[in-house]
Amino acid sequence: MMIVAHQLAKRVTTAEGPLTILDEVSLEVAAGDSLAIVGASGSGKSTLLGILAGLDGASSGTIRLAQHELSALDEEGRARVRAELVGFVFQSFQLLPGLTALENVMMPLELHGKPEPRARAESYLQRVGLSHRLHHYPRQLSGGEQQRVAIARAFASEPKVLFADEPTGNLDSATGARIIELLFELNAAQGTTLILVTHEARLAQRCRRQLTLEAGQVVGLTGAPVGEPVYLAPAAGAR
């Protein structure tokens, strides 16, 4: 199993009292599999993604990413795991405005001391069809192009798991479709495990599993079951 989450919960204290954002969510995702987390705004999708990716800690429950018990690690420990295993694609692209496309892709490679960051970044930008845009700054690129740079950046580190948060949320449907193609193409080529958050049905359908959240609880799982389970229904959430 690449990801095993058991009874994950996230509770926060607000001015109006305690608030449960995630409630007893358990799931398993096999290596190389793909899972779409869907749900309305405020259902807890992004919170779940953040916890699964080790960006945030859960209030209770356990989570294992590859061989690492994330729930037992502090932020520094989780950072090491992210550096080793995780890649991201964001709705708002998260490109650094002061860096060129090439430098944006090179940045994580340089930060982790990977060999030949430039050649590798160029090769990935070529794979996403931007070899003619290497030295352009984000503001000189269209939304679709910016997301392609972000995808190149995510895959260039060759992560074991790729987390994508609404990757087509800021794009028109035609551009979004091309981005979806690209994402799955690279995913298949590199055998990456893909977890994505979306409210776009077309994108969710491209994943092998779709997990639906409502008010922090799992209310459904669709998709073809093969071999191993991607979803263990919690007692409270099995409706």
């Binding site: 950072a79 992210r82 550096a83």
Partner: peptide, 16 residues
């Protein structure tokens, strides 16, 4: 702030 958040999401530790 955004740049640091991104770097940290990519696994760069606070000390680094």
């Amino acid at each position: 702030i955004d740049q640091v958040a991104l770097m940290k999401s990519l696994g760069v530790s606070a000390s680094k």
